[in-house]
Design a protein around this nucleic acid. Sequence first.
DNA 1: AATGCTATTGACATTCATTATCAATAAGAC
DNA 2: GTCTTATTGATAATGAATGTCAATAGCATT
Lengths: 130, 130
Amino acid sequence: MTDSKRRNTWQKDAVRHALGEAKGFVGAQQLHLVLRNHGSTIGLATVYRALADLAVNGDADSLQSQDGEVLYRACTTSHHHHLICRECGLTIEIEANRVETWADDVAKEHGFANPSHTIDIFGTCTACQS
Amino acid sequence: MTDSKRRNTWQKDAVRHALGEAKGFVGAQQLHLVLRNHGSTIGLATVYRALADLAVNGDADSLQSQDGEVLYRACTTSHHHHLICRECGLTIEIEANRVETWADDVAKEHGFANPSHTIDIFGTCTACQS
DNA sequence: AATGCTATTGACATTCATTATCAATAAGAC
DNA sequence: GTCTTATTGATAATGAATGTCAATAGCATT
């Protein structure tokens, strides 16, 4: 837990920064391409590792696209969910306290421990409906 | 839609039946193994195709496990969600009318069309807590 | 500023789920 | 039975993600 042995590298900063620049959710491969196109020499495996780190530390959200790829997004702060455009990837953060407690209640009702949940809403945003 | 050209094969029936026998969610590979262990000579690709068909026709639910595999489950009838044990895969169907409408409302609020959603709750069931 | 320790990197190989290919098979109509 | 063609299945191909490991570079210490 104590990251006394964690080292800061320009690679991690680059991934963090690139993820912040991205609009919606992006995959590791895609992010790697963007970085290379900007002149970076970062390796693909490093991008995967950096993104996994960010997700573990709560600095990034992750979800799986419908074709199985894991997508990441820079995370603001607290626990929340997403409304995502199927076409352009535009993402809106959703507060869902009502649903949070509902999910935990359902789990508790059935005797399930350590409940977690996946709640995402997909649709076509106004811009993409033309 | 008109399946005038769809043919009925024992392979499709076998997959449908095996999926019905399974307790929780199962992957295509796993289902294929079960079928082979029961003496079937069905091919892996056929299992994938049959499962995809079932999902499209609304006869099976599908979701992605946390390691990227797509899992299927025989579907009873109407729209519903799942409470799933992380250990043993035990699955309980959840009625979530409150959440259904909430999800649609959120989408509409932001001008998103054709809303759909992913709502799954994970936990450790009572049996697996020992 | 130089040294030592080791976390981290990156090119590459590997794993694994899923899909594409395509000749052979068999379902259903006549 | 015959014909048409949807379907099958062995295999190759794709692609995301992870493992490997020598080389690199952070960072504390001297």
